[in-house]
């Protein structure tokens, strides 16, 4: 519902209007350009209007979901998955020593202000309401990977006062870093602690910048985006590639998809199901 409203309001009508108003205030003589620029999603039958499309190779789904096979998660897999995510998305590492020459007089980083997209937890932290004194031994020591659940009913989307966090039609809950005002209401709203805030400029703490993905400015919230930028180029998410088959991503609404096939065969649980957020990340036990 929320999503539909957003699309109806923003596409062409309101955004186009604001934009046109803004431009004409600045440059009244640029009428042709205004037409060209603000012709958003108009279908573009006329050849002299610009057309915007997704890439042909893009991977698409009705509702993206993730299945994590806990039996295949080892410490090595965890390490390479977390590293792959960090390198792909320019996530700062507060243990990294900043380059003195490039960034002189940098104040020390506070570990508790760090940024995580996907990270390791124990069973009793990942599933705190399912704590059990007679829990099978193997689960006590097993590493659990936790990340954004891309909830169907995402509390963070509901909380955001600017629609900077929104739900795409394909189910990915994503951040518009350009729009975020840094109020951190979404962080209070997320029941999974999956969101991080940029308390400071991240650049000094990134060893090697991946030019394929932006760095974030200070003062905005961020989280896992299910590698939307890779899916759009026809690539699997970085964590899936690094996971040696432990993580699978696919269309939850497509009965023929691999994730659905796995879910049909195995007993899988989701985090804090009782909250009704409908997470899209499943854990095979």
């Amino acid at each position: 519902m929320i999503n539909k409203g957003e699309n109806f309001l923003s596409k062409s009508n309101r955004r186009g209007f604001l934009k046109a108003a803004g431009i004409s205030a600045v440059a009244i003589g640029a009428a042709p350009a205004i037409k060209a620029v603000s012709a958003v999603a108009s279908g573009g039958e006329a050849t002299n209007l610009p057309v915007k499309t997704a890439k042909i190779e893009a991977l698409t789904a009705k509702r993206w979901g993730m299945v994590i096979d806990t039996s295949k998660i080892t410490d090595e897999v965890v390490e390479s998955v977390v590293a792959a995510c960090r390198n792909t998305h320019n996530i700062p590492d507060f243990d990294h020593k900043p380059d003195e020459k490039k960034y002189p007089n940098i104040r020390p980083a506070k570990k508790m202000q760090e940024i995580e997209w996907i990270w390791e937890e124990h069973y009793h932290n990942a599933f705190p309401e399912m704590e059990d004194e007679f829990l099978a031994d193997k689960f006590k020591s097993l590493p659990f990977l936790v990340t954004c659940n891309h909830c169907k009913n995402a509390p963070c989307v509901q909380a955001c006062p600017t629609k900077a966090t929104f739900k795409r039609e394909d189910g990915i809950v994503i951040m518009d870093f350009h729009r975020c005002i840094g109020c951190r209401f979404c962080m209070a709203a997320c029941p999974y602690g999956s969101r991080s805030f940029n308390f400071r400029d991240a650049r000094p703490f990134i060893e090697k910048i991946n030019p394929e993905f932006p760095v974030r400015s200070k003062g905005v919230v961020e989280k896992c985006n299910l590698c939307a930028e890779r899916l759009e180029r026809g690539l699997q998410p970085a964590c899936v590639e690094a996971s040696e088959g432990a993580i699978v991503v696919g269309d939850l609404e497509d009965p023929e998809s691999e994730v659905r096939a796995i879910l049909k065969e195995n007993y899988a649980i989701r985090r804090k199901q009782e909250l009704g957020t409908e997470p899209s990340v499943y854990y095979i036990m």
């Binding site: 915007k52 997704a54 870093f177 350009h178």
Partner: peptide
């Protein structure tokens, strides 16, 4: 930037 981030379209065929 709005089109890429919010409508997940990345290709622009200009006029």
């Amino acid at each position: 930037r709005d089109t890429v981030v919010r409508d997940s379209k990345r290709v622009y065929k200009a006029a």
